[in-house]
């Protein structure tokens, strides 16, 4: 073991790693234009929902019966009415932005909470095994078997409908999903030879589960979480549509769809715009989830490999072909 002890470590190598790890994702994102577009769309929606609402809260709630069902795509009544107005003459564009904030906040908090809880319980369950595992999974089964909409209906009927309660209900109904995925993935990864190898070198069990197994469970959970953003937005929209999600003055996209339902034949825009907003957000989240899964797995990052440079000058290749034939 005398070799290499005194060898100076090149600085380039020491610096190489953190930078590449940090920028790797962004670099890869640039190479898949469709995903990049979706990421930008999602970022714009999120930024708008985050920044704009405080400035337009009053204007969005402004009822103006003279402007009820103003048609979209006209600037006659100002930019706020670009997407028309609803039954009470409220500007659709501003309502959509207010709704974006609520919808995204509900979706993100529900997904993050349910994800973290399910992830932790799922891995714990797989790690402990035995009757604890069985009990936890049966609970998950029970929550999963009851139709989530029905369960949410029941809970929200008892509790007061509010943003907080809506989030709690969504967390409750969506957690089993992550529990199962995290547990299944942990059990699968745990069988890997590298886990045995880690034990053979003397790693602690807690270290193996947190340091060796967890990184392989995380991408799966992230993928599921991104998918779930779409599902949760839709579920929240559904609950609001049914009238037990939110109450005015809170507004989200599902509620807007519900409000417009009665006027579908005369004023389509009241229903369609919030519907389109849900679809675009859900789609973007789905595409991003697919991409996240691929880049979190080092063995799959070749999918985002740099394209080969243009072919070398023709003579060599034709010469090769000639010699082959």
């Amino acid at each position: 073991m005398s070799t290499g002890k005194d060898a100076p470590m090149p600085n380039a190598i020491a610096r190489h790693r953190p930078a590449s790890a940090r920028w790797r994702r962004l670099r890869l994102l640039r190479r898949s234009p469709f995903t990049a577009t979706m990421a930008i769309v999602l970022a714009i929606i999120a930024l708008t929902a985050l920044v704009v609402p405080p400035f337009i809260a009053d204007a969005a709630e402004q009822q103006n019966l003279a402007l009820r069902f103003v048609e979209p795509f006209s600037l006659d009544h100002g930019i706020a009415y670009l997407l028309g107005a609803d039954a009470l003459g409220r500007p659709m564009l501003l309502q959509l932005v207010m709704g974006a904030r609520t919808s995204l906040m509900i979706a993100v908090s529900a997904v993050v909470l349910a994800g973290l809880i399910g992830y932790a319980i799922g891995m714990f369950s797989a790690y402990v095994g035995g009757w604890v595992d069985a009990a936890l999974m049966r609970i998950a089964d029970i929550i999963h078997t009851v139709p989530s909409l029905l369960l949410a209906l029941a809970i929200l009927y008892v509790l007061q409908p509010s943003v907080t309660n809506l989030i709690l209900v969504l967390v409750f109904t969506r957690t089993p999903m992550y529990m199962r995925v995290a547990r299944a993935r942990t059990l699968e990864v745990r069988e890997g030879v590298f886990v045995e190898a880690a034990r053979a070198i003397g790693s602690r069990r807690s270290r193996i589960i947190l340091h060796d197994i967890r990184p392989l469970v995380t991408p799966t959970i992230l993928t599921v979480a991104m998918l779930e953003i779409a599902t949760v937005i839709l579920t929240a929209a559904g609950l609001s549509f049914l009238g037990i999600g939110l109450q005015r003055p809170d507004v989200d996209w599902g509620m807007m769809v519900a409000d417009g339902r009665g006027y579908l034949s005369s004023a389509w825009w009241v229903t369609v715009f919030p519907g389109v907003a849900v679809v675009i957000t859900a789609l973007a989240a789905n595409v991003l989830s697919n991409w996240l899964r691929a880049i979190e797995d080092p063995t799959q990052s070749h999918l985002f490999a740099k394209p080969l440079p243009a072919e070398a000058p023709a003579p060599t290749s034709s010469a090769n072909l000639g010699s082959l034939s």
Binding site: G192, F194, E196, A200, G202
Partner: peptide
């Protein structure tokens, strides 16, 4: 387990058949 852990790697170490699977794919 504690005594075994102290022994593993230092006293006795092991090399496995499948070299791809015996390294963790997510770490360098």
């Amino acid at each position: 387990e504690n005594r075994l852990r102290a022994l593993r790697g230092r006293g006795i170490a092991m090399v496995f058949q499948d070299s791809l699977d015996s390294l963790n794919p997510v770490y360098t």
